[in-house]
């Protein structure tokens, strides 16, 4: 409802008042986000072109840090491993989460709200606490091993459970499954039962009805969930640090290490910028998709 200018040379007092209200309401938040969100990212971007000399930051413009991201095989391996892990975690979350979201939206009846909240609630518990629990579960003398031994399924504790890429993946899936179920639920909830019934009435079997109606209509939810899951899985260092053992570092751990232990800010900033570029690309692509899916012209 944009006012088209040109036709109204005079601004009425009531309109001026409205504008002042709008400005006063928006300005604090916008300024806050500029100072504490946009400016920090810009500083980070600038620092990524600087260099370190004798443990001091030296301003300048050097692409060396970026070259290192792609030239250093260890860094490159971490980046690829991170992408693989994030991809696997996203896939696992989608497969695990879809039936649950479907169940809550379509089959849970009056328990719907309770079940939905129960899915999301763990997400609000500090990630440090949630992930630390998995150490108790997966450790060599952990709950799962002890349970397996006492059930007689294995005589020796399985050593590979904790401190492996697998345990990292389990932790990440655990951490971000709630985040995936939420948009999936929202998308499936919008699908009216009558559409599915109509498909079945037109002689589509349950599987066909799912593939022809439910799945395509819930695709936006799948995409949104996937983007969130992927981004969070990519940029997290708590889970791999607590469960991954440290043999193969993920990219987020390396960035953290560069900043906190090695004090190489430009190096870390450059890797962070590469990460950010990947995230931005994903966001842009998904927004483009969602816009097309919602019927707007791209």
């Amino acid at each position: 409802m944009e006012r088209i200018s040109g036709g109204s040379p005079t601004i009425l007092p009531s309109q001026r008042r409205r504008r002042r209200f709008a400005l006063a309401g928006l300005a604090p938040l916008v300024l806050w986000q500029l100072v504490f969100f946009v400016v920090p990212l810009l500083i980070l971007l600038v620092i990524s072109f600087w260099t370190m000399r004798n443990y001091r930051l030296e301003p300048g413009f050097s692409l060396e840090n970026y070259r290192a991201v792609f030239a250093d095989p260890a860094l490159w391996r971490s980046l690829v491993l991170s992408l693989e892990t994030a991809f696997f975690v996203t896939l696992a979350c989608a497969l695990l989460g879809y039936p649950v979201a479907y169940f809550i939206a379509k089959k849970a009846g009056r328990f719907r709200i309770v079940l939905l909240i129960a899915v999301i609630a763990p997400f609000w518990i500090s990630i440090v606490m949630r992930i630390s629990a998995w150490r108790i579960l997966l450790g060599e003398n952990g709950v799962i091993n002890q349970a397996l031994i006492s059930l007689g399924l294995t005589s020796e504790p399985l050593g590979g459970l904790l401190y492996s890429p697998v345990s990292t993946a389990i932790g990440l899936v655990y951490a971000y499954l709630p985040l995936y179920v939420l948009p999936l639920y929202a998308a499936i909830d919008r699908i009216q039962d009558s559409w599915i019934d109509a498909a079945k009435d037109l002689n589509a079997g349950p599987v066909r009805a799912f593939l022809e109606v439910t799945l395509p209509l819930s695709l936006p939810g799948l995409v949104v969930g996937a983007v969130f899951c992927f981004i969070f899985g990519l940029g997290e260092f708590v889970t791999p640090a607590l469960l991954g053992g440290g043999k193969q570092l993920l990219i987020a751990q390396i960035i953290q290490d560069e900043f906190q232990r090695r004090q190489d800010w430009p190096g870390g900033a450059a890797i962070a910028m590469v990460l950010l570029a990947i995230v931005f690309t994903l966001l842009l692509l998904s927004m483009r998709y969602l816009r097309i899916a919602s019927g707007e012209r791209p």
Partner: peptide
């Protein structure tokens, strides 16, 4: 809604621009 052009009068007095 305020008109882009023109005037609204109640009881003979213009109210355009009044909240």
């Amino acid at each position: 809604v305020e008109p882009d052009e023109g005037d609204v009068r109640i009881g003979g007095a213009s109210v355009t621009g009044l909240p």
